[in-house]
Nucleic acid binder design. Structure first.
Lengths: 217, 217
DNA sequence: GGGATATCCGGCACTGAGTGCCGAATAGGC
DNA sequence: GCCTATTCGGCACTCAGTGCCGGATATCCC
């Protein structure tokens, strides 16, 4: 991702960028929803943003990457939130609280979030492109778990915690997309509670009477 | 996957296939390890198997799919094993036992398995192609969990169980690839035990004293 | 034996993603 | 006005993936 350096620094040297990653993302999202992902070429997206095809690939490595822009940015917020979590909070509680906190969206941002996730969870080419983006997200969780467990981030348990956390969140995302009835964070909290409980007692589907802070008995 | 129908039926009607998915897979695996994934074209693979480029795409939809052939086949064995598991075994125990059982490989198959997983876990283009193949695997677990929980397979908990199960297994796979010290099933059992325990008490990394069948206390 | 039929293969042309290269355009610094 | 830094646009190229069609090779049936 060697995108142009448009860091709000008004006195840069060279030619000013004629677009932005955000602008390309909006154009792509609109075209993808209007006429489908496969029937939209990179040429179309670039033209809609007023730049050339070649310039699109200076902002994003692939056609699919344009839809992962916001998701990739979330990784930074995830790491910041992990750094701010108090040490007394237990590992799985901390993960749940951080993930839920990071996924609070302003009401005006929700429609775009839904549109993006709708595409990601339905278009095969977009599902297929998820891997590298998920990896960075998982690693943020794995690094936190590793620091708590006193183990290296690439060992079994930190790795497993990072990946299962994302897996549970993806189930919550999909459920939110499919039903559209309540807040995203509700599903995230449910899924991460179930994960921390080892999926015990999910037989009823009644989450409200699940024990929040289960301790040694 | 509209591959030729070479179902061991010796008296088919038309022209016999001049290669097989398995043969193409072996050629691809050899070339990928020898000269790298990106530096191997589909033309190269087809030539190594003695067929044309066009024919390769009759056996596999994409260049990456050739390495997922065995993995896709495992899904069938997974479903069969789930059908055979006794009803008295608890949900998460059943999942762990089935997954571990399906992943017992003969010693002579291990080197090829390692080579394939080595590629999958290192080459970005292959990681990126994992999505659809993982989905089918996850769905097999989700369907089983749904039948046990009395819920639909596309609801939150079955979905979460299917995805977190694969996530834990992938952590085990990666650990096995990285260390190469013990059997794959050892790591799988560890990771799925940890998942069923909600990742409690993983601080020590000592798995042997974890309680196997933890029940209500 | 010989046609009818079924299946697979090879080749060609085409679209579109992604890349390397280079010169042009537009800014600030001196 | 010249130098430098940065972005942009265009061109040419490789390669993945697809649609199409004729040819090759098998079995079936008469």
């Amino acid at each position: 991702m060697n995108a142009p350096r448009h860091n709000a620094d008004s006195h840069r040297r060279g030619r000013p960028p004629s677009t932005s990653a955000r602008e390309l993302e909006r154009a792509a999202l609109r075209l993808f929803t209007e006429q489908g992902f496969d029937d939209t070429t990179v040429e179309d997206i670039a033209a809609a943003a007023g730049v050339s095809r070649r310039t699109f690939f200076r902002y994003f490595d692939t056609k699919t990457a344009v839809l992962w822009h916001q998701f990739d940015g979330e990784v930074q917020r995830l790491r910041a939130a992990f750094d701010a979590v108090p040490a007394r909070t237990s590992l799985m509680d901390a993960i749940r609280e951080v993930v839920v906190h990071v996924n609070h969206y302003r009401a005006e941002d929700v429609p775009e979030l839904r549109a993006r996730m709708q595409l990601i969870s339905t278009v095969p080419a977009l599902q297929a492109s998820a891997g590298p983006h998920y990896d960075a997200w998982e690693r943020a969780v794995s690094d936190f778990a590793a620091s708590r467990l006193g183990q290296r981030p690439d060992t079994l348990y930190p790795l497993a915690i990072g990946r299962t956390t994302l897996a549970a969140c993806r189930a919550a995302f999909d459920q939110w997309i499919a039903t559209a009835d309540t807040d995203l964070t509700t599903y995230l909290d449910l899924a991460l509670q179930a994960l921390a409980n080892g999926f015990e007692g999910e037989r009823t589907g009644q989450a409200s009477r699940r024990v929040r802070s289960r301790r040694r008995c």
